[in-house]
Design a binder for these strands. Structure first.
Lengths: 250, 250
DNA sequence: CGATGCTTTGACGAACTTCAACGCGGGTGG
DNA sequence: CCACCCGCGTTGAAGTTCGTCAAAGCATCG
């Protein structure tokens, strides 16, 4: 029996029902765990009131106590550079974890802000570590998630290091498309919860360039963009652009 | 009693002596572990014959069985992009781990090549996971190391996303300087084990640009560069350049 | 000692940033 | 309910950084 059809039912916050009844099951931390194990994991997870657009989950320097899983909505993480500016480090969708990069310093090196109304699961880290000692599957999954994140960062490195503006934006759109699809939404028709500024910052290009590339994509009939709504017309071609060869030295 | 003064004594490979007598103790996986725990960790670690310059530790797609710690020498990791080119993802110095990004896919997503004669410790991952279940300190340290790596990747993201060629090279030199210092070498006088090509690839700039920036730094009396030998004359100024404000939209 | 690969330097052009102005839409207050 | 205002997004023109192409210098190695 399924009580919660999506993760956004605020009334269920703090209720006993949790991972077992969350439709993000296969994307999140509980991947591959048995139901006994799940019950144990559930018991340490806290649910908090949803964040409104613009609210922070944590700031830079906030002591690290817990990692978080997005339940619904979306989160933007960003870090201040030494020079007083910011670098957007990622956009998190439902089922994705955040806060893992804080373990080392015991405080958050980046801030996390809701890009829209967002509900989250809070997983106290010390208790998670304890639990990992007893549940091999959980330990493995935690390591796996972190490994996955390392991998993602590496592909972003390639993006920033080797790709042109068009390729970068195409890659971001593709990534969003895939992630929405895995969550049961349309891969070709979705809403951008982040601003052009966020996109430009994340992809290492000026806002104006983001805007121009969007326009160019639209001229080429690859997509239709209306403010924050994206409708992808030619996904395969977008994929071609994203993985297009870049002139290199070798 | 200390048998191995540094990690490069080939004759000791496969000998019982290991972490407890390695001078990289405080940099590597065993941080904060008791001597009983260390003994257990030692028991699963294998030492292999040193790699010669240009030899691979693993290739892309190699099944993942173990993570590695650099004992002496240095390793370059790089990943092929979809377009047939490569992106250098990092340079590993003694005491640093590699292979963690492979957990998720169960095979290595990047290749690892020795930039000079390099000896390594091999840590079978399954046995490490088992051990982590019994040694909370080890589990914590493994998570910490991965967290640290996430953090490093993020600062590299900033580098590639927001910084000019000069700032990028200054940041790399600074990073190397700090890491050499922690390992007991001179922070101002060291040998670059990587080629200009590697540097350019890693920092997302053309070889020629790397060369030009080196020349500019030398003209400005920041450093003296002779082929692969670097002598930093003005470390503080280099730090200023590395963290110089970049014109942003905000 | 010539060959080869790596590095450096110069000239040119392209891609992107910067600066500036304008359009659009949503929210607020009259 | 409408008008105004402000933030966000778009578009154009000029300027800069960096990549590309080409060629030459310089160590290493057979």
């Amino acid at each position: 029996m399924v009580y919660a059809v999506n993760g956004d039912i605020v009334g269920l916050e703090q209720a006993g029902a949790a991972c077992r009844e969350c439709n993000l099951f296969q994307l999140c931390l509980p991947v591959g765990m048995g139901s006994d194990e799940l019950e144990e994991l559930d018991s340490i997870i806290k649910r908090r009131r949803p964040l409104k657009r613009g609210e922070h989950l944590f700031h830079v320097g906030t002591p690290f106590h817990a990692i978080y899983a997005v339940r619904s909505g979306s989160i933007r993480t960003y870090a201040p550079t030494e020079d007083g500016h910011e670098q957007v480090t990622g956009f998190r969708l439902p089922g994705e974890l955040l806060g893992l990069e804080a373990i080392h310093l015991k405080q958050h090196p980046c801030a996390a802000m809701a890009m829209e109304t967002t509900s989250l699961c809070e997983i106290p880290f010390e208790r998670l570590e304890e639990l990992c000692l007893r549940l091999p599957g959980l330990q493995h999954q935690l390591l796996t998630v972190m490994s996955k994140e390392l991998l993602q960062d590496q592909s972003l490195l390639m993006l920033l290091g080797k790709k042109s503006a068009e390729e970068r934006l195409a890659a971001l759109l593709l990534s969003l498309s895939e992630r929405y699809q895995r969550r049961g939404f349309s891969p070709t028709d979705f809403h951008l919860s982040m601003s052009r500024n966020d996109i430009g910052n994340y992809l290492g290009m000026a806002v104006e360039t983001v805007s121009r590339v969007f326009s160019r994509f639209q001229e080429d009939a690859l997509l239709i963009v209306q403010r924050k709504h994206i409708c992808i017309l030619n996904l395969p071609q977008l994929a071609v652009i994203a993985s297009r060869r870049v002139s290199d030295t070798e």
